[in-house]
């Protein structure tokens, strides 16, 4: 079996400031990888490089495509990459506003990816939108409401539905629970965990919140100053941190 995503030696600098450097990882089908670290640790830069939003200075991102096998995403043509991004990949932004069309109804938001890949039956598109809204616990009566009429938690769930409707295999998430109340966070995490299991999704989740990775991630990477300082099975890393920084990170949470 091929790894779904092979990341080799990714590096990205901003002038003389290091974004991230020498990051490698393999992500297997159905596996969820958590990336933790404080702000400025390079985790968001890494995610941007992996998800095709930013070109790294060095390195390769090899994805096991459905029809052509492993391919370097960075070497793909723009149309190929965009096609991948709206079919097989999904990207959940921290701020729903960045990932939704605020002037378009919830149904239109979920339907967009279907229409982008050629769906042309209004009734089917709408039915699938309603179905997906239900799966993220948004009632069918809200299908024609704009996201601006939704709460923060609902907007985030809508963003997830919009991303997952085309049945992607790989999801990138950037602080998916950031900016939400604790109770709302818990519900969202529950939902995400269910969807990941049910759809057999692979995911890379970037967060500063150890509770998120504890719940969702099979494996964990800890980043500091642009480098990976520790990696391993989530429970192992959290229960028995080896690197001093990881110990600090874990202990600071436990004390709360």
């Amino acid at each position: 079996m091929n790894a779904l995503l092979q990341v080799q030696g990714i590096a990205k600098s901003y002038g003389d400031r290091v974004g991230c450097t020498d990051v490698s990882l393999d992500l297997w089908p159905g596996e969820v990888m958590g990336v933790v670290g404080e702000s400025g640790s390079g985790k968001s830069t890494l995610l941007a490089c992996l998800s095709g939003q930013m070109a790294p200075d060095r390195g390769a991102v090899i994805y096991d495509t459905r029809d052509r096998g492993p391919m370097d995403v960075l070497a793909m043509s723009e149309p190929e990459r965009r096609m991948l991004m709206r079919t097989d990949w999904a990207l959940v932004h921290q701020t729903p506003r960045d990932g939704l069309r605020m002037g378009v109804s919830a149904g239109g938001n979920v339907g967009e990816r279907l229409m982008a890949v050629g769906a042309r039956h209004y009734g089917d598109i709408r039915a699938r939108a309603v179905d997906w809204l239900g799966r993220v616990e948004i009632g069918p009566d809200r299908v024609d409401d704009p996201p601006s009429a939704f709460s923060g938690g609902m907007q985030q769930r809508l963003q997830i539905a919009r991303n997952l409707v085309t049945g992607p295999r790989l999801v990138f998430m950037d602080e998916p629970t950031g900016g939400l109340d604790v109770s709302v966070q818990a519900r969202l995490l529950d939902l995400l965990r269910g969807l990941v299991r049910e759809m057999g999704l692979s995911a890379v989740i970037v967060t500063h919140d150890l509770a998120v990775v504890r719940l969702l991630a099979d494996r964990l990477m800890v980043m500091k100053d642009g480098r990976v300082v520790e990696a391993g099975l989530t429970d192992q890393v959290l229960d028995d941190p080896q690197h001093g920084y990881t110990q600090l990170l874990v202990s600071s949470v436990l004390q709360v």
Binding site: R86, R101, V104, G107, G108, E112, M115, R120, Y122, D144
Partner: peptide
């Protein structure tokens, strides 16, 4: 895709 989103919105409204 966006073009069809506009048509979709028309029909839903």
């Amino acid at each position: 895709g966006l073009m069809h989103v506009k048509l979709y919105e028309d029909i839903s409204r």
